[in-house]
Design a protein around this nucleic acid. Structure first.
Lengths: 236, 236
DNA sequence: TCCTGTGAAACGGTTCACAGCC
DNA sequence: GGCTGTGAACCGTTTCACAGGA
């Protein structure tokens, strides 16, 4: 088996005498939560490999990913049949399948927009390079910073945003700018050809549907905590 | 009307001749996504107030929050009846209601664990103080940093984590430490009395159910982007 | 008339349970 | 016997549609 449904054109293995799937049915919708779990599974598999595990069952993966065995199997079955009944999944094999599914079998060219505190922290974050995300440029509107280098990466003028994205063939933009300019900056990034945006501004970006957006809203996360705690403090 | 169901003990306004709600029915379950939208609504209301708006309809709020008018009304109706039929919601009044619901009508005492790059960026992040989150201490295991101050806030020894939480009456912990020590550090924070944890390590924390956890997994967000883009690049 | 508040329907994701294969 | 893969049941969330108050 082991056929990955990366191109989203074939159905999971089944009777081929069934009625053919319609086109609208072919681009299968994978939920955000599934993707997040796949990411967890991959990390867990890498740990397990380091610990010498060769094979893993769905309930072990569930444990590390904070979910259930059935959920693990359901998640994976959306992309193919990677396991062996009675045995489990091959640790290295499944990890490689997940990398392909998550698009980690290539390197990604990432632009940092905003060379402030948050930008600097992200730039130094070691886990990005490990997973295939490479900083290819930085952009800022502070003349004092333009022309400097962080490591080997040059800080360029915010005015040149579109040009930088084009000339440096940027795939992803990490948007670490103030909320007031986030929307227009994001639009310019998309105009330049960016395919995805990771947004740190606490606003809801409005971008074309074919642009991927990941929002990291730190204030919202804290508010979610204080809501939960406030609720708990009020026993009936 | 305007009665807020903050204590989760009363039902939304309705005929009182109805059968009394059972206890299991009283601690109403509010979904994570609802809370996130409430946070968006609050921000939108603050903007609208600055722009001079006095009244707002659910479809305007929906626009800014990236959702639908029905969703806005459903979200709000979980906590009370804040609007006027035919008119909409009072901008200032609804904002205040949302602050109470989200637990923003008090200040929160926050501890930063990990004085590295990410910790520094978060410490400088201006939006936290605006919303009522105050840094009361920092903890790190680097002897070179212990005893220093960031602004007025002292960096203390990681060994004293539990003590710091107790003596400084810490509510929330921001965990900006390497993945390897995140779980044990979180457990110590909970032992010390922390009520909520914002976790930046790319692992799934396992903590008691009465501790609120907000995970910010940056690598996962990037992987979510590359998944979406990879999918798009494969038209049938 | 306008717009809220809310039951009811529709949808989508999770859990269950078991057939099927190793 | 063990564990996967998956239809079916379940359950929570979103959308619909409309009754009812301003």
């Amino acid at each position: 088996m082991h056929n990955i449904v990366t191109d989203f054109t074939s159905r999971p293995p089944g009777r081929s005498s069934r009625p053919q799937p319609q086109v609208s049915d072919v681009v299968r919708r994978v939920s955000e939560s599934t993707i997040r779990r796949l990411s967890h599974y991959l990390r867990a598999l890498e740990h397990m490999h380091q610990r010498g595990a060769v094979t893993v069952a769905s309930d072990e993966l569930a444990e590390e990913g904070g979910t259930t065995a059935a959920q693990v199997r359901k998640d994976l079955s959306q992309f193919g049949s990677f396991g062996k009944r009675g045995l489990g999944y091959d640790v290295l094999g499944l990890a490689e399948h997940l990398r392909v599914i998550l698009g980690l079998n290539r390197r990604w060219r990432v632009l940092l927009v905003g060379a402030g505190r948050i930008g600097a922290a992200l730039f130094e974050y070691p886990n990005f390079a490990e997973r295939g995300y490479d900083w290819v440029a930085i952009v800022d509107d502070d003349f004092a910073k333009i022309g400097q280098r962080w490591g080997t990466v040059l800080i360029r003028a915010a005015d040149d945003l579109e040009d930088v994205i084009r000339s440096d063939r940027v795939d992803l933009v990490v948007l670490a700018v103030p909320a007031e300019v986030a929307q227009t900056t994001a639009e310019r990034a998309v105009a330049g050809g960016a395919r995805g945006v990771m947004n740190f501004a606490p606003i809801q970006l409005r971008l074309p549907a074919d642009v991927a957006v990941a929002d990291v809203n730190l204030v919202m996360e804290l508010e979610s905590l204080s809501f939960s705690i406030t609720k708990h403090e009020q026993p009936a």
